[in-house]
């Protein structure tokens, strides 16, 4: 692993909460690691597991999904469904021995710019320690 390893992170952020939190962090001039590549989605429930798998197979070291707190979903129950889907995906990764810790789900509401910064920093630090994802390096994927 190179000393200055910087993990690549793909973020799927809900339009109604985490994306707004990211905006808020920006307008409040808070700093957070530039490792995350945010993708805005309409709901965490619209993130198909195959998007996460594709990211991890195509070079990402980690994927973070940001959704509304339970009970706050703009579409009533999207985040509950996301929670089940991600639990399934993490289980698959766990059983296949593929580092499920690289998939991260977090509830960050529109007003939680500070939490957004904290969580992104935490996740980046964790991935820095974990090093390059084996899965992202295998050319046969």
């Amino acid at each position: 692993m190179p000393d200055n390893f910087e993990p690549k992170i793909v973020g799927f952020f809900c339009n109604w909460c985490t994306s707004v939190a990211a905006d808020m962090a920006g307008t409040s001039r808070m700093e957070y690691p530039a490792n995350v590549r945010p993708i805005r989605v309409m709901c965490s429930g619209s993130v198909d597991p195959s998007y996460v798998i594709r990211a991890l197979l195509s070079g990402a070291d980690g994927v973070i999904i940001g959704g509304c707190h339970p009970g706050d979903c703009h579409y009533i129950s999207g985040n509950f469904k996301a929670r089940r889907r991600i639990a399934i995906l993490r289980k698959i990764f766990e059983i296949l021995g593929l580092e499920q810790e690289r998939i991260y789900l977090e509830w960050i509401s529109a007003s939680e710019g500070r939490k957004f910064v904290k969580k992104i920093t935490e996740f980046t630090e964790k991935l820095r320690k974990m090093g390059v994802a084996e899965l992202s390096q295998n050319w046969e994927s």
Binding site: I88, Q137, E140
Partner: peptide
């Protein structure tokens, strides 16, 4: 671009994506 990330790209493409993705879709 996909190939240049790892030096090469396997054909047929997306084999692992298909299998792990299919698992995530129908394992329940």
């Amino acid at each position: 671009d996909l190939a240049s990330r790892k030096g090469g790209l396997r054909a047929p493409t997306d084999v692992m994506l298909f299998h792990i993705g299919r698992m995530a879709h129908m394992a329940t």
